[in-house]
Amino acid sequence: MALQDKYKDLLDTATASGVSDLQVAEQDGVLHINGTAPSGDVKDKLWNIYGQIDPNFLSGDVVMDIQVATAVTGAKLTVVTESTNLNIRKGPGTDQPIVGKAAHGEIVTLISKMNEQWWLIRTDDGAEGYSYAQYLQPA
């Protein structure tokens, strides 16, 4: 329960911001927080609060997975690589051949989610394949 107190601000904000399917469970000294945020902004806000309570996320007492509800089939996604192109691959895995690239900041369309890490996307040029979800954010 002590961890829930430490991260009370975070949990309260998650509830107040309309995070659905919010699950909070403490196990082996780690607070696991899962839920679906109504927007990418809410996800960012929660990560910022987490970063305020635990600067640089170094305590290792939280594992937080906040999905964004707007990342659904047909949704437009922005490529959020640091500066480089995003690889689009034939299959879900970095060992898969590259079939296309999407530029930093380009808008692509989400076709389906293979899993939480690999999403099938299509660029406006028609290139279709799997990219790493970490570099895609609902536009």
Partner: peptide, 8 residues
């Protein structure tokens, strides 16, 4: 965190 580990 999105990989659901026990701890990071």
């Amino acid at each position: 965190d999105a990989l659901h580990p026990k701890k990071v």
